[in-house]
Amino acid sequence: MKSVSQIRKRTALIFLIPVTLVLLSSALYPLISTLYLSLTDAELENFLNPNYVGFINYIENYEGMWYGVLADSLFWNSVRNTLVFSIFSVSLEVILGISFALIMLIENKLKWFVRAAVLIPWAIPTIVSARMFEWMLQDQFGIFNYMLIGMGILEQGKAWTTDPQTSMIVIIIIDAWKTSPFVAILVYAGLKALPNEVLEAGKVDGTNGITQFYYIIFPLILPAIAVAIVFRGLDALRVFDLIYLINAGSKDIMSMTVYARREMFEYSHFGFGAAASTMLTLIIGVIAVIFIQRTRLHKLDEME
């Protein structure tokens, strides 16, 4: 006669089977087939029947020249773009998100309006907001240039989204605009969870707005911020739609995903593209592991 807990465990396992199957087939299978593809010479003609070629797609020396993903300066350029984009946009989003969360805390008649306004950028689909910004930043008809020229800051309209010097900054700003609400919500939840009496004790001890934030509020919402950074960081490393929509061909903002896609689908270098995809997965994976390690260690200290 099985004990109650044994029966429970078995039931749990049985319930887990369908989920595991779905996960394995939808996530594991493509992962493995991409890995396999990266070791073949698959192109348009032989896609259904490629040949195994080992690590040629990753790195190869032919007649004195280096070929392969790891030898492609464009690949490393896109890695650099992705990292720059991720670091700056996540930082900006955290700062904006915290600010919005603090604003959302203010109790007044406009509270519902402020909250809706804060959430709207996130609710708008990327393609809509990308086009919106494109039009606002357009050099001849865009409102942004119109205002700058009117204020005398610029003489002619600037092509913000295609100018190599400004396109990355523009992308970062659009992304921060779009996703700060996400950070704001996480931080807001953290703020709401702050025990009010602790803040009052702070007031009694003599905090003003700034010291209260620095000594009490900020350390206590750090876990929420860490969660936001992990999520946003992983999203940012995977960025595709915004960059593709604004300027798919530009070298200055090309991210790893845009690079991989171009190799795969525009050049039909399925093997090479798969290798690029594998590399980008590896890079993101390593960064993710390092980051989660650090934040969890940080949390362990507090949670004990």
């Binding site: 050099d139 001849q140 600037k158 092509a159 295609t162 100018d163 300027n247």
Partner: peptide
Amino acid sequence: GTISPEGVIG
């Protein structure tokens, strides 16, 4: 920037 706007690059 001379006979074409700077934005022509976009």
